[in-house]
Design a protein around this nucleic acid. Structure first.
Lengths: 342, 342
DNA sequence: GTGAAAGCGCTAACAA
DNA sequence: TTGTTAGCGCTTTCAC
């Protein structure tokens, strides 16, 4: 394979020569070390900028065994929640002069592992990712190696790491409580995969609300799905076909809400008169439907920013213990449950 | 700033020692060079894998002046079109053992330039991006430096580079023609920023369709916007407030369609009876509205894949001239123009 | 406060 | 076919 070779950029050597100092001094000037004479520093920086010099990050990374790149791994780039998190992460990282290396795994453990190993080989300073139970052991290995990491959105038991999640249980609770408050007592839920912590927690919230209201759980109303559109579509159809269909459905993520809406439309079920609906997550399209969809909103941006900040802190000082942040959720009431006709 | 130092991973030296060969042989075995004895290669690879060796990409990149990372810069990560392209790019890149470094610029030239310069300092093998007129000179500089690149979605005049775009004019033409065919003759368009080629082309398609139909252009019906939600919202309101409002609106991207729908909902304008609508780009939510939105669909996935393939080719052989690919668009007819009641 | 020199892990001449 | 050796551009001891 013939590789193209780029015309070489300006190096530290040339800057040193032009400024009549050693490369060490140039390096120090750029690192902002205070052991270098302020005047000299100005001079060096001036020469460097006039030469259009930009330190080679690859060389720096090799020598110093650190880099300004962090790895980011998300399960789904088409999920508003994750792109929101990416934005939050990126804004913090950018401000700190870090770059991110982004991959998405489609929640496929093999792909994820692959990516993780590549990221490590790339010498990233740390990683932010959404853990998958199947790779638990690999995470531990990376952790033992001292790779700084922060997990977002999910947690897996037995893996002690800095984590930023969402108040999922609270969200599930609020959604269900809201429906109960409107008089619904046949409330179904379409859950995510139960090996994922946030899916379990959202379900827990639902259960707690029902229990507090003294409403017995109907197993059939708890439809297990996988956070994807198609299974939610199917689950909705099943619910509709039941002899005693629910009067309300709580769909536990954005993409599945699409599937449920699709099924409802297909069967011409009116919202909210024939079916009330609460979603989870709040992409822009939720409010332009008629009626707008009532949702549990979680601050993906802030979650991402928080995760990035945690990671940056981890890069600076050796870790002691691990921290867990939980972002609050919020119920955005629109017309899909019959309160407001919008 | 105290940087954390990772416990060093296995290096080529240790593999060489364990396999009782030189580092060069290990390197060659990994590079798949056929000058190495097949048996020896097997042996080396075996030892390496038993040691859990993974070549350090940073060192490789520094030494060989090439890398397996490519940079990707998009204007908006919340735009379905770009995330689709990212997926397409990533799948091709992954298969070729490349990683991508993703940034998004918010279409801010300064941020874009910043990113570009970081990517270069990171030693990426090439870049895929969506060019912005304001950075024209910088692109030329990068090109002169020999950095392989491919542009997607837009083109800027005077910048000769491999490009993959969409048949925007055709799309605009089809959309307008479709509306004309249904008897509409007061058709408005909400355009993107005219300094962006695809926005100009979509408008051209609209114009051509009107012209062919012998319908004179009404300047007020051509609302200039910026591809963002808010301006589309405003533009829609303006159109509605006009003494002779249009009977149909062609909104030229996904995000603006959201803005238009929002405005229409706010004013309680019925689709399609009081206003017909055609959008551009086809995220999942377009079809779950009632009625579903008729759109011009463009294959963002394939566009991305094509771009990635072009780039990979550029990495292999020195370039001669430049190539331009144009992906076909397709009209997806739903109920928003009054043909099908869905 | 500054410079000289070693070396990060790898690849690529050049030798053998 | 394989090994030896130099060096990619930078940071970082260790001298001065």
């Amino acid at each position: 394979m013939v590789m193209q070779r780029r015309s070489s950029a300006i190096t530290i050597k040339e800057v040193a020569a032009a400024a009549k100092v050693s490369t060490a001094t140039v390096s120090r000037a750029f690192a902002g070390m205070d052991c270098v004479n302020p005047q000299l520093r100005q001079h060096v920086l001036g020469v460097a900028s006039s030469l259009n010099y930009q330190p080679n990050r690859v060389a720096r990374s090799l020598r110093s065994r650190t880099s300004n790149t962090i790895g980011l791994l998300i399960p789904d780039i088409d999920n508003h929640f994750f792109t929101g998190a990416v934005r939050g992460i990126e804004s913090v990282l950018n401000a700190a002069d870090y770059t991110m290396l982004l991959g998405h795994s489609n929640d496929d453990p093999k792909r994820e592992r692959n990516y993780l190993s590549t990221l490590r080989a790339e010498g990233v300073a740390g990683i932010i990712f959404c853990p998958n139970k199947a790779n638990h052991n690999y995470y531990l290995e990376l952790q033992r190696d001292g790779l700084p990491m922060v997990c977002i959105a999910r947690e897996i038991s037995g893996f002690e790491v800095d984590t930023v999640t969402v108040a999922n249980k609270q969200g599930g609770y609020m959604a269900t409580k809201h429906l109960l408050g409107l008089g619904h007592n046949r409330i179904a839920i379409i859950t995510g995969p139960q090996e994922v912590s946030n899916a379990r927690e959202r379900l827990e919230g639902y259960r707690q609300a029902l229990q507090e209201a003294g409403i017995p759980e109907i197993p059939f109303y708890i439809q297990q799905a996988d956070y994807r559109q198609q299974q939610a579509h199917l689950a909705t159809l099943k619910l509709l076909d039941h002899p005693a269909p629910p009067t309300a459905i709580f769909v536990t993520n954005e993409v599945m809400t699409l599937g449920t809406l699709e099924a409802l439309k297909e069967r011409q079920v009116k919202i909210p008169s024939e079916m009330a609906l609460v979603g989870f997550d709040d992409p822009a399209w939720m409010k332009i439907l008629s009626p707008g969809i009532t949702v549990v909103k979680h601050p993906s941006n802030r979650l991402g920013a928080q995760a990035a900040e945690l990671l940056l802190q981890n890069l600076k000082k050796p870790k002691t213990g691990f921290r867990q942040f939980v972002m609050e959720t919020e119920l955005i009431i629109r017309g899909s449950c019959g309160v407001i006709s919008s």
